[in-house]
Nucleic acid binder design. Structure first.
Lengths: 139, 139
DNA sequence: TTGCATATTCGACAATTGTCGTATAGTTTC
DNA sequence: GAAACTATACGACAATTGTCGAATATGCAA
């Protein structure tokens, strides 16, 4: 066959991406501005992060290596776009937490939330609404 | 005054502890066996983790430095105990995730759970029960 | 007391992450 | 075309994390 099938590992990355702190910060801006150049990102973050251009660029290059960003070259310019979706990144972050702190089980996490994170009446009401909406789902 | 008040930073650590992967693995065993020696932990983990004694010991020493473990010395033996609670560690992990992936807001996370993590009927039923139990809480 | 069996200490090493600086190469503008 | 910009390419460095091995110190048993 002419094109190579992505391997397990890369699919894993796609559906369960684990970003570092700096990567998250950059990724959020990419999702909002893609495709965009490293300079754009640096400027967009200028008021919150005092990062040198090279800091942003190096991090983005590493992200491209990891498969989190794609690069499209136009003449001398590199345009970056996301290679993973926001949902994939959120899923990765969420599952990592779930696995580490709750052995991967959702119910204990919920339990914890209610018992120790003190959901307010408002929040638990919202939650109830959400849960009801989910009632007719798969299973 | 005779005793020093813990500073913001150390309180931060206590109530919002952030453990690394290896630290989580070790901490879980400590919580179940404390007080215990490094050798105990290594043995307890022997079937799941192929770690040399020194690996476990080094990691635990570092954890003690960070204030996650306490050491009590008996003769030539060091007995380790947890210096942070399970709840604190879970809170730390949960909040880190919440901040990174959902800008710290709970409701969007719930939304995400239901929309993308496909809660099963069983799970959403459980959730509903939990939420109802939490109905009469603080606000 | 001599010595084995443990524990502890500590230094080491590679990989990852956060952060830059600088040397180059490609454009654009007089 | 040469100067002034702008982007890229890279190498670097410190701190953290995951992992050990080896040297040293201790305590118990024969």
């Amino acid at each position: 066959m002419a094109h190579s099938k992505p391997n397990k590992k890369s699919e894993q990355i796609k559906f369960n991406a684990e970003l570092t702190e700096a990567e998250w910060i950059i990724m959020k801006v990419v999702w909002e501005n893609e495709p965009c150049a490293a300079g754009n990102i640096q400027e967009a973050l200028a008021n919150s992060k005092d990062w040198a251009y090279s800091t942003v660029k190096t991090t983005m290059d590493r992200m491209a290596n990891k498969g989190f960003l794609k690069i499209q070259k136009i003449r001398n310019l590199q345009l970056f776009s996301s290679a993973i979706s926001e949902v994939d990144a959120k899923r990765g972050e969420f599952r990592k937490m779930l696995k580490r702190a709750f052995d991967g089980a959702l119910t204990p996490m919920m339990q914890f939330l209610i018992e120790h994170e003190g959901l307010s009446k408002t929040e638990s009401a919202q939650l109830r609404k959400l849960v009801n909406k989910a009632k007719n789902r798969k299973d």
